[in-house]
Design a protein around this nucleic acid. Structure first.
Lengths: 98, 98
DNA sequence: CAGGATCCTCTTTGATACTG
DNA sequence: CAGTATCAAAGAGGATCCTG
């Protein structure tokens, strides 16, 4: 049916899934993490993580920093907007308990 | 892998899907609606609507009121908690735009 | 180390038909 | 009118292997 999408829905597609949610939380506690570090912490698979990171990056929640060493390294961190998602979560927590 | 669930995730399962979201919005504008009225307004199918309504009811967002006439009528409305979800949406809207 | 390619399963959604 | 039953389709997530 694909009519327009409400903000709630857009939000939930980003951080409402198991992994979107956990990525934000982990980056919240860690400043910067490499791909495989994240992978281990979330105990998921590369495809799922990669997909989610791309989505989050595209929507401006996550920042990618590439370091050209050998082997190459890539670090992920939250943007200001991404940190805002944590505030949203607090708000939601209160509502769901109240 | 089914560890514990964050509040964000629980919230999103309720109102983050296309239909959960629209049901809340429609009930927000209408006080009370019958099953088929809702069905027409959302233009979805009975199964999807029925499933979602059960989930929302189970989680205390939606109230069911049965009127024993012939034919039987059932009205759905938002609870206080359900109305709170609308406030959460406002908060999210601000964040997603900002 | 960072991720792409495959393939597979499970859940959600949907269309349609039917019942009390 | 308010749903349930059935079946098909699509997408998210997952396991595993592979490459620059």
């Amino acid at each position: 049916m694909a009519e327009e999408e409400c903000p709630m829905e857009r939000f939930c597609k980003l951080v409402g899934s198991r992994w979107g949610c956990l990525i934000v939380k982990n980056l919240m506690n860690n400043d910067e993490l490499g791909f495989n570090e994240l992978l281990r912490q979330l105990s998921t698979n590369p495809k799922t993580l990669s997909d989610k990171l791309k989505l989050l990056e595209k929507n401006g929640l996550v920042k990618r920093r590439v370091v050209n060493e050998m082997p190459i390294r890539v670090f992920y961190s939250l943007t200001e907007k991404g940190r805002g998602a944590a505030r949203v979560e607090e708000f939601i927590s209160k509502w769901i308990k109240g």
